[in-house]
Each structure stands twice: as C-alpha cells, then as structure tokens.
C-alpha cells in the first residue's frame, strides 16, 4: 500500500507542508484567499527540536487504535487508509487522545475530528504536502 513517509534527514523544518495541507483542505482554490489572515489547522505538523525536523501525519495504521476507540463508528479502515466520516463524528475527541502520533486533531471549530485522507477528499486529488515539499523529504510510495 502506498503511504506517506517522511525522511527526517531531508526535512528542513520550513513548515511549508502545513500550509499546503491547510490550503488543499480549505475548499478554496486560491491560496491567498484560503489562508490570508487565518489560523491554520493542518493534518500534517512539523515537529522541531534543534536541528531535527520531522513532519508527522496519519500513518494509516492497518489496525488503528483510533478506529477501535471511536464511539460513533466515524472512523474506518477501508483497506487503503483510515477514513473519517465527519457526519458521524460526535466530537468526543477520544481518537485525538489515543493516536500515538498526534495525527488526528479537532477541526477549525473544534466540534469534530479531522484527519489526513491522502487528499482524496479535496480538489488536489494527490497528497499536496508531498507535491510541494521543497526537498523530497515527504514521499508517497510503496514500501514493504
């Protein structure tokens, strides 16, 4: 299965992917209109400590703890990825508490959870963070 991987060796900590993610999921096709003056809530976050940087997003675990702990059946693994159905989400945010990567988070309003669906749910149709990474640190590929 293709997954997003981050190679810490090449991650520059520029945080560009966070903005590209927020843009991709904004529903607005102009980046300036989408993000100007807004606080962003991306599905990918860059962790920095000193010279080490690492972008983290959903690992799409096959036996995901978020799926198992969702009380509303909003999260599911479809064989490809872990999906969220925000219509079913009741905003208890149990998933946010249990995800060991901190990869699932409340949305802009904080009422439901949001997570990476590999950009299949937005107009970019391919992982936008991967596409815009300056240094090929984020890749979308098949690995065993």
């Amino acid at each position: 299965m293709k997954r997003i991987y981050v190679n810490e060796k090449w991650c520059l900590g520029c945080h560009l992917c966070e903005y590209e993610c927020a843009f991709a999921n904004s529903g607005v096709t102009d980046m300036v209109k989408a993000l100007k003056g807004k606080k962003i809530h991306p599905n990918i976050r860059v962790e920095d400590r000193g010279d080490v940087h690492f972008a983290v997003n959903c690992r799409h675990c096959t036996d995901a703890i978020c799926v198992r702990s969702c009380i509303a059946g909003a999260l599911s693994f479809d064989g490809e990825m872990v999906r969220i159905d925000q219509n079913k989400c009741v905003g208890c945010l149990t998933c946010v508490l249990v995800c060991p990567y901190g990869a699932i988070l409340p949305d802009d309003e904080g009422h439901v959870a949001q997570k990476c669906m590999l950009c299949t749910n937005n107009f970019t149709q391919e992982p936008n963070c991967v596409r815009h990474c300056l240094n090929n640190a984020i890749v979308y590929e098949e690995r065993d």
Binding site: L12, H15, Y19, M31, V32
Partner: peptide, 26 residues
C-alpha cells in the same frame, strides 16, 4: 502584503536572517 499569508517559510529559509515575523502586527 496582499499576498503574504505570514506562513514564515521565507523566514525559516533565509540564513541571512532577513525576514522576521512581528507578532504584534501579525
């Protein structure tokens, strides 16, 4: 200024420390 979204990517990528973010004015 109409296009800048204050993402601070320029700031993080300039080793000459040209760009900076003013938290007061955003």
């Amino acid at each position: 200024r109409d296009r800048c979204i204050a993402c601070r990517v320029c700031e993080r990528q300039c080793a000459n420390l040209v760009h900076s973010y003013d938290a007061e004015t955003g």
